[in-house]
């Protein structure tokens, strides 16, 4: 009896050691390597998908009127990009070069449809929030761009990191733009009236509105998103001067 317990204990210990060993080597080789961390941090600034690589602009304009949809979209893109990059990276030695675009699009579209269908069945409320973004996610050129430029030539783990990093860099710009557009355009953040309440008359208003402040409705229109992104680029490049273009 005791011998049996000892045996199982020993077996368990060995197993634990093995797991520890595996995770350790994994960490030493990939998680902690400098190159891999760069994969995550680079897209946040030096190689930002929106402001430097010029990818994923359409969605950045369409959904940055408010913070909430911007954040929902960012989360969805993180998921789809990480998954898509891994799948394509696993398939990279099998995909014939001539039909690679179709394969990439089919993988992305299938992933998005699977997610959409599952959400519709189990998390209906979330799916209602996401449903208008489905088309935008499939045609988000960040996803295609990274599949084409990175995942086709690198291993799954690196592609995974690249996907997360680029989606995060994309989300960062989305959130910055949405913050300014919602704040200046409707005086709200996440739907809360942070600048006070605007009544029908000056007397009924509170906060800034009582002083005669007006929302700039222009910020709600899409052209303003372009101009806000332009200003973000201006700010980023005046701090990070190596990004400045010749003309």
């Amino acid at each position: 009896m005791s011998q049996e317990i000892k045996d199982t204990n020993e077996a368990k210990k060995k197993k634990d050691e093995l797991i520890l060993f595996l995770t350790k080597t994994e960490e030493r080789e990939s998680l902690l390597s400098k190159a891999n961390r760069k994969l995550l941090s680079d897209p946040l600034d030096d190689n930002n998908p929106i402001t430097v690589q010029v990818l994923g602009i359409c969605s950045a304009l369409a959904i940055t009127v408010q913070l909430k949809p911007a954040i929902v979209m960012s989360v969805a893109v993180v998921f789809v990009m990480a998954m898509g990059n891994v799948v394509i990276s696993l398939l990279r030695n099998l995909v014939p070069n001539r039909i690679r675009i179709i394969v990439q699009l089919v993988v992305v579209a299938s992933l998005v449809i699977v997610v959409d269908q599952v959400l519709k069945a189990y998390l209906y409320d979330v799916s209602k929030q996401l449903s208008i973004f489905i088309g935008l996610i499939i045609t988000n050129c960040i996803i295609m761009g990274r599949l084409e430029a990175f995942a086709l030539g690198n291993g799954p783990w690196k592609s995974f990191l690249d996907g997360i990093g680029n989606a995060a860099g994309y989300g960062l710009i989305l959130i910055i733009v949405a913050f300014f557009r919602e704040l200046l355009g409707s005086g709200k953040l996440f739907g809360f009236e942070v600048l006070g309440h605007k009544g029908l008359t000056l007397e009924e208003s509170t906060g800034l509105y009582a002083l005669g402040y007006e929302n700039n409705g222009f910020f709600l229109l899409s052209p303003m998103a372009l101009i806000v992104v332009g200003v973000v680029i201006w700010y980023q490049r005046s701090r990070n001067r190596k990004l400045i273009e010749e003309n």
């Binding site: 010029v54 680029i233 201006w234 980023q236 490049r237 005046s238 001067r241 273009e245 010749e246 003309n247």
Partner: peptide, 8 residues
């Protein structure tokens, strides 16, 4: 302005 050149 230099930082606005190109994309900006």
């Amino acid at each position: 302005p230099a930082p606005l050149k190109g994309l900006g």
